Computed example of a mutant assay.
Amino acid sequence: MSVKVTLSPSGNQFQCHEEDTILEGAHKEGIILPFGCRSGACGSCKGKVIEGLLDRGEYQSSALNDEEIAQGYALLCCAKPISEVTIEIRQVNGMKDIQIKKLPCRVESIVKPNHDVAILKLKLPAQEKFEFLAGQYIDFLLKDGKKRSFSLANAPHETGILELHIRNYPGGSFSQYVFNELKEKTILRFEGPLGTFFLREDSDKPIVFMAGATGFAPIKGIIESARHKGITRPMTLYWGVRSKQDLYYNELVQSWVDENFNFIPVLSEPLEEDEWQGRTGLVHEAILADYPDLSDYQVYACGAPIMVESGFNTFTQTRGLPEDEFYSDPFTPSVDNKRTT
Rank of each mutant, 00 (worst) to 15 (best):
T6G: 08
N12M: 14
F14S: 03
Q15R: 11
Q15F: 12
E18G: 08
D20Q: 15
G25R: 01
G30T: 06
G30H: 09
L33T: 00
P34S: 10
G36A: 15
S39F: 04
G40S: 12
G40I: 07
S44H: 09
K46V: 00
E51P: 01
G52F: 10
G57L: 12
G57M: 13
Y59Q: 08
Y59S: 08
E68N: 02
A70R: 15
Q71I: 03
G72F: 05
Y73S: 03
Y73A: 01
A74T: 02
L75N: 01
E84V: 02
V85N: 04
V85L: 10
D97T: 10
K102E: 14
L103E: 10
S109Q: 14
S109L: 11
V111M: 10
K112W: 03
P113F: 11
N114K: 04
V117E: 11
A126Y: 07
A126D: 15
E131Y: 11
L133A: 11
G135I: 05
Q136K: 07
I138P: 02
I138C: 10
D139I: 09
F140A: 03
K143C: 08
K143P: 07
F150P: 01
F150C: 03
L152G: 03
A153K: 03
N154Y: 00
A155L: 06
P156N: 08
E158W: 08
I161A: 08
L164D: 02
I166K: 02
R167A: 05
G171T: 09
G171N: 09
E181S: 13
L182S: 06
E184T: 14
T186K: 13
P193L: 06
P193D: 07
L199F: 15
L199H: 14
L199A: 10
E201D: 13
K205Y: 12
K205R: 15
P206T: 09
P206M: 09
I207V: 14
F209G: 04
F209S: 03
G212R: 01
G212M: 04
F216H: 05
A217N: 05
P218T: 12
G221E: 05
H228D: 08
K229I: 07
R233N: 13
W239R: 05
S243G: 12
Q245M: 12
V253Y: 05
Q254T: 09
D258L: 09
N260A: 14
F261S: 11
N262K: 15
I264C: 13
P265L: 09
E273A: 14
R279F: 07
G281Q: 06
L282C: 07
V283A: 06
H284K: 04
A289C: 09
D293R: 01
D293W: 00
S295Y: 00
D296P: 03
Q298K: 09
V299L: 01
M307W: 00
E309I: 14
S310N: 14
G311D: 00
Q317R: 01
Q317D: 00
T318G: 03
R319M: 01
G320F: 02
G320K: 00
L321H: 02
P322E: 04
P322Y: 03
P322H: 07
D324G: 10
D324T: 13
S328Y: 08
D329A: 13
D329G: 05
V335E: 15
V335M: 13
R339C: 06
